[in-house]
Computed example of a mutant assay.
Amino acid sequence: MDGNLTLDELYEAANEMCRKWWGVDYTGTIHLTDTKWRSWRGYFIRSTGDDSLREIRMSRWVNARRTREQVLGTLLHELVHWRLFTLGLPSSDTDREFVEECARVGAPISGAVGARRAAQKYGGETQ
């Protein structure tokens, strides 16, 4: 599989996607871990009290077992979380705004039960 993108490649892709869909650069960070995640493909973490943390986390181990297209889809999904959060909009997998934005930009919806239900309710597609 060719999903084992470098940190530089992920940042480059993040900026390209953000410019394409929202006309802005990605201002958060990306963290690659060596942890062997079983359930996650990526996630967005943020601090709510201040702007100190806006980070997409991905696992090298998970990415290496996926295609480049799958990894970039996950990155776009996490960027939707980031963008909506930075705008002060609802950004959870189960929020209508999140599902609709994922559908608009072509980002996959996670396979979590709540996310799949929200996708069915609001018209998104699951991974």
Rank of each mutant, 00 (worst) to 15 (best):
V62N: 05
I56Y: 03
T94Q: 10
Q127S: 15
L76D: 02
N4G: 11
V71C: 02
V71G: 03
S39Q: 09
S52E: 13
L75Y: 03
M17P: 00
L84E: 00
W61R: 14
D51Y: 07
E125T: 13
T27S: 15
H77Y: 08
Q120M: 13
K121W: 14
V105T: 01
E69V: 05
A115D: 08
T74E: 05
V113S: 15
W82V: 00
T33Q: 05
Y122K: 04
V113I: 13
N4A: 14
W82I: 00
Q70S: 13
D2W: 07
L76F: 08
K36G: 08
A64K: 11
A13I: 01
T48K: 15
G88L: 02
I109A: 00
S92R: 10
A14K: 08
A112V: 04
E125Q: 14
T6M: 13
L32N: 08
G42H: 01
A14T: 03
T86S: 11
H77G: 02
G106L: 03
R68P: 05
P108S: 01
Y122N: 06
Y43L: 11
F85R: 12
I45E: 15
D34E: 07
L72N: 06
E100A: 04
A103W: 09
K36D: 12
A14D: 06
L76E: 01
Y43K: 03
N63L: 10
G73E: 01
A13Q: 13
K36Q: 09
K121F: 13
S59G: 03
R96S: 07
D34L: 11
D93I: 00
E69N: 04
V99H: 03
T67C: 03
N4V: 05
G73A: 01
G49Y: 11
A115E: 05
C102M: 05
E9Y: 05
A103K: 10
E9L: 08
G88H: 05
E69L: 00
S52A: 07
W40K: 11
H31M: 14
G28Y: 10
D8Y: 11
R117C: 12
S92D: 12
E9Q: 15
Q127F: 15
R54Q: 13
K121P: 12
G123M: 04
L87K: 15
Y122F: 12
D95P: 03
D93F: 05
W61S: 12
C18V: 01
D34N: 12
D34S: 10
A13K: 13
T35S: 09
P90W: 06
T33R: 08
V62D: 04
T33W: 03
K20V: 05
S92N: 15
W37R: 03
F44A: 01
R104M: 00
D2I: 09
L87I: 00
T94L: 09
W61K: 08
V62S: 04
E12F: 11
G124A: 03
G124Q: 02
L84N: 07
R60S: 11
D8W: 12
H81P: 04
P90S: 15
